[in-house]
Amino acid sequence: MAALLELNDVSVTFRSRRGSHEFRAVDRVSLAVSAGEIVGLVGESGSGKSSLARFIVGLNQASAGTAVFDGVELPGRTRPPELRRRIQMVFQDPYSSLDPRMTIGQQLSELLRVRAGVPRAQVSARARELLEQVHLPADLLRARPRRMSGGQRQRAAIAKALSVGPDLLVADEPVSALDVSVQAGIIKLFAELRRSLGLTVLFIAHDLAVVRHLCDRVAVMYMGQIVEQADTAELFRNPSHPYTQGLLAAVPRLASRPVRGTAVAGEPPDLSRLPSGCRFRPRCPIARSLCEQEEPRLEAAGDDAGHTAACHFKRVPVAGEAGTPATGNGNDPSSREVT
């Protein structure tokens, strides 16, 4: 199946605060999202998740690379309204897409009339239908965002994004600010919208457990690059990149279970002073001298189709021993030298 969205070596460059130099917040990212798929994007703060998301919806420009959406290359600068309509974004803070002065009904009606071209006579019925789709009571049409709870606001923001009939929803940490009791409802809502509307979602999160529950596929970002990508079940069963392993090990658990691997130590270095070779090297527990000399590229990790990792010594599962700590690439782990 052809991808709905295909990014090829996309970079997003910013100038540092002091203006002295440029750095790549997104560094040669390639990613394909198929229609009807929910793809998770995870990584630490500053890894470039939002920068990539904002590029996809047209709020950031790429400094290099191309993006193809439904067979059409996305233009570098201004996007025609039709393209903008088809790719919508939902933010962590729903306030950023809600107008505090207008009721939810007014905001939806305006979008339906102006952007979605719904005939006037059908606008109010359609607005009700949208609220139903996101499981909000119809009387909230008359409410302003201030009067609503955090979860209700996020549902309203999703309803606004849906009102123009998008094909792709880019959701940037839509549940990160919500209480866990409410978060579960929003996670289910995304799953349901994919089922009922065939919506495609790029779902950004820092909570790996949330991603595991919702997404079909996951891409792990580190300092502007995707360092590992796989189907969700495969990624959590056989994390291959030391960074992915370390992220997983850092997640606090409700039940005391043995956790594989060691959590990532240290903090990500400054993007403007990238280490030579592999950018994860300063924090990597298994780095060797090759890692200093050569930047690893995303390559197949194991037999699972679509599982790739960017590590010279990625852990590759041997057939039939999924889930057990395996040896890296046929290299003898006992001969590891730490640089």
Partner: peptide
């Protein structure tokens, strides 16, 4: 119990997530 069932588990996807109805 609701809070526990609403908390997604990173090691396991058995069982559906539970959303406590309504809001605090």
């Amino acid at each position: 119990m609701g809070l526990l069932r609403a908390t997604p588990d990173v090691d396991d996807v058995q069982g559906d997530l539970y959303a406590i109805p309504g809001y605090a």
